[in-house]
Design a protein around this nucleic acid. Structure first.
Length: 700
DNA sequence: TTGTACCGTA
């Protein structure tokens, strides 16, 4: 009878028999439980050995028991028994060091190792792998190198397990040159050696080298296993190399075949997502028999990355039915999706879900929540959540600064930024972008300039193209067009398309046709296929009623076969997000919406509204232009919200492009007419409309 | 009285 079955049988018998199992029998059983990591059965056997008196004074059994608890990851129990053993052998020490190292307590593992040395026990070829693992996990180079030296002194440098552990440790440190040196010197390599080096290259951002090592391995006659493929799939994702990904998929089917484990399947799904092939990912997902949280998370984050927020929310609800439990990773993807479509009610119900489920709002989740609230228009909730994050990292501060910025609260954004510096957090390029654009949305020219020039001077962060375009935007919006132009001319870097785009839109705001033409020229040279520049230039000409020039730009667009991004707006009602395109008639309440628009137009005109048709790019009669303005997606969304919500309810609208000038005026007036607070998010910022005024103060 | 490793998915 195989040992495993004997074990099971004996264990089942143990509670019913008064016959004590002999010590040797207990030991064999414990060994088998150690291998299978069966904690509860170990507890049963422990109890049995106590009742029967077998355990009494039995160092052999004590040692086995401690090792078994350690292998199961129950370190307090293991430690308790360990402390009672006077005659500690190397097996016992190694078991404890392993237990701590492999169950998330690397520091304790090293403390154990130190105690072992003090105790006079010599480390052996089993000790070093765990100690090296602990050093690697803790990223402590100094101690790692010392242990390496001891390995050499002890003559373990030819032990394959020890060397494999060294490879792993140095790749965790990022010391790939040492990894390579050790690997090349190895006279015998096993699959683990290859796998360690391959995944080492992937983890350190050298996917190409990982493939080279894989080739080397194949030429040496090696066949990859699940672990090899896992690393290579990750490399395919990093390179966005779908062709290679499919090849690896084929290799997996041929060589790993039916052994195809969940890890590998999940990793394949993730690879297809990273290679922008969501349909392949979906296909695999549908084929999966057992879907765990990682399977769901992979697909969900795939949809989130490609911007399909509605699919994310759909999958999130299906996940519950599918029996998988959402975790922090799920929640972060879902919050990002809410963020994309401004689904604040949905987002806050995700927040309550987290709290109800007893999940901790840790740094990552907290940061995602802050970002969601800020991007969905609830700056207050964002701030409150931010305050609740116990350990704020740079990302947390950045989303909060961005939040204040897009809501036009520039001074608070700056204050937040300096508060962060006061906490000795080192700023990076990202947070400078946040704080600079916050200045530009609030017209804080002096403050913004000072921060820009302090970047390199005080914080050793060289301004990149994005920082320059923030500066140009800041100066340009505020009307300092010539100074903005001079900034571009004096840039240390080569100006990119974004910089010229910033100047061009400033020219539109301040109706400077001449500089606009210069900027547009530069922009089209650099990025002839970007649509926004053409739209902006057309608008500038249209505002001056220079229809021939409008026509010329239109012809250029046609020649280059470009298409304007369709404009659309979202509005959330009862946790459902409604989407409207320009001139959309597909909504079931469409007739009511247009009737409401017509009514609003009449009311506004009575209140003195004069349509500004300059954003209409067609030389048609004024009446038609006016009608075209009322087709704008943000107005359809607004009319829809006005029909379907009670008086006094705040309305939140999101638009994928910049809000047009006339819509801005109209929404201001509607906020007064209907006594509603209207919060609108466009591509660059928030507009809080209240009582006929907007928070943006003209900066948008 | 007896055996312990190294490399993996979002």
């Amino acid at each position: 009878m195989p040992l495993k079955n004997t074990t099971t049988l004996l264990l089942h018998m143990a509670p019913y028999t008064t016959l004590p199992l002999p010590s040797l029998q207990c030991g064999t059983l414990l060994q088998s439980l150690t291998n299978s990591k069966s904690f509860s059965q170990a507890q049963q056997l422990h109890a049995h050995a106590i009742t029967c008196g077998t355990l009494l004074q039995n160092t052999y059994l004590y040692t086995k028991l401690s090792a078994c608890y350690a292998a199961c990851g129950h370190m307090p129990q293991a430690q308790l028994i360990f402390d009672q053993i006077l005659l500690k052998n190397s097996f016992l020490w190694n078991s404890m060091i392993r237990g701590y190292a492999c169950n998330g307590f690397p520091l304790k593992s090293l403390v154990m190792y130190r105690e072992m040395l003090n105790f006079g026990q010599k480390p052996d070829n089993f000790t070093y792998p765990f100690v090296l693992k602990a050093c690697g996990d803790l990223l402590i180079r100094g101690i790692g190198r010392k242990v390496h030296a001891l390995v050499l002194v002890g003559g373990f440098e030819s032990n394959i397990h020890v060397v494999n552990s060294l490879l792993s440790m140095y790749s965790k440190f990022g010391d790939l040159a040492i990894v390579r040196l050790l690997f090349d010197k190895m006279s015998v390599r096993d699959l683990t050696s290859w796998n360690t080096v391959i995944s080492g290259y992937v983890k350190n951002g050298e996917p190409e080298d990982a493939f080279l090592v894989f080739d080397h391995m194949r030429r040496a006659g090696g066949i990859g296993d699940g672990t090899t493929l896992l690393a290579l799939l990750s490399a395919c994702g990093d390179l966005m190399d779908l062709k290679m990904g499919k090849a690896i998929h084929g290799y997996a089917v041929r060589n790993v075949g039916k052994v195809c484990n969940e890890f590998l399947m999940n990793s394949l799904i993730d690879m297809y997502c990273n290679c922008d092939s969501i349909s392949d990912a979906r296909k695999l997902f549908e084929e999966l028999k057992l879907r765990d949280a990682v399977s769901w998370n992979s697909l969900i984050s795939g949809y989130e990355k490609c911007g399909d927020a509605f699919k994310v929310l759909e999958l999130f609800s299906q996940m519950f039915v599918g029996g998988a439990i959402p975790d922090e990773v799920t929640v972060i993807s879902v919050l990002r999706a809410c963020n994309q479509i401004s689904a604040s009610r949905l987002g806050s119900s995700v927040h309550s879900f987290i709290v109800k489920r007893g999940h901790k709002v840790n740094t990552a989740v907290g940061t995602a929540l802050v970002s969601m609230y800020a991007n969905c228009g609830s700056l207050l909730c964002a701030h409150r959540t931010f305050d609740e994050i116990l350990e704020k990292n740079l990302a947390s501060w950045t989303v909060m600064v961005t939040g204040f910025g897009i809501h036009g609260r520039g001074r608070e954004a700056i204050a937040m930024f300096y508060e962060m510096l006061g906490k000795n957090i080192t700023p990076d390029e990202g947070i400078f972008i946040s704080v600079l654009s916050a200045c530009s949305h609030s017209g804080l020219v002096g403050e913004g300039k000072e921060i820009f020039y302090s970047m390199a001077r005080d914080y050793n962060v060289e301004p990149g193209p994005t920082h320059y375009s923030c500066l140009v935007d800041l100066l340009g919006r505020a009307g300092y067009l010539d100074e903005a132009h001079a900034v571009i001319d004096n840039m240390k870097l080569k100006p990119n398309a974004d910089v010229w785009t910033a100047l061009l839109s400033a020219c539109r705001l301040h109706r400077n046709v001449k500089l606009a033409e210069i900027s547009a020229q530069k922009l089209f040279e650099m990025n002839p296929n970007g649509m926004s520049g053409y739209v902006c230039l057309s608008n500038i000409y249209a505002a001056e009623r220079r229809w021939k020039d409008v026509e010329r730009v239109r012809a250029l667009v046609k020649k280059r076969r470009l298409r304007k991004t369709p404009s659309y707006s979202f509005v959330e009602l009862n946790k459902t997000v409604h989407q409207f395109f320009v001139g959309d008639t597909s909504h079931q309440q469409s007739d009511d919406i247009y009737a409401k628009s017509k009514h609003l137009n009449e009311q506004l005109k009575k209140a003195g509204y004069k349509p500004d048709t300059s954003s209409v790019l067609y030389d048609v009669e004024e009446e038609i232009k006016e009608k075209m303005l009322w087709d704008h997606s943000e107005r359809l969304a607004l009319a829809f919200a006005l029909i379907n919500t009670g008086p006094g309810t705040t309305i939140r609208i999101t638009k994928n492009l910049r809000v047009c000038g006339d819509c801005h005026t109209v929404i201001k007036m509607i906020s007064k007419l209907t006594s509603r607070e209207i919060i609108m998010r466009d591509i660059s910022r928030f507009h809080h409309f209240r009582d006929g005024l907007c928070s943006c103060g003209g900066y948008w």
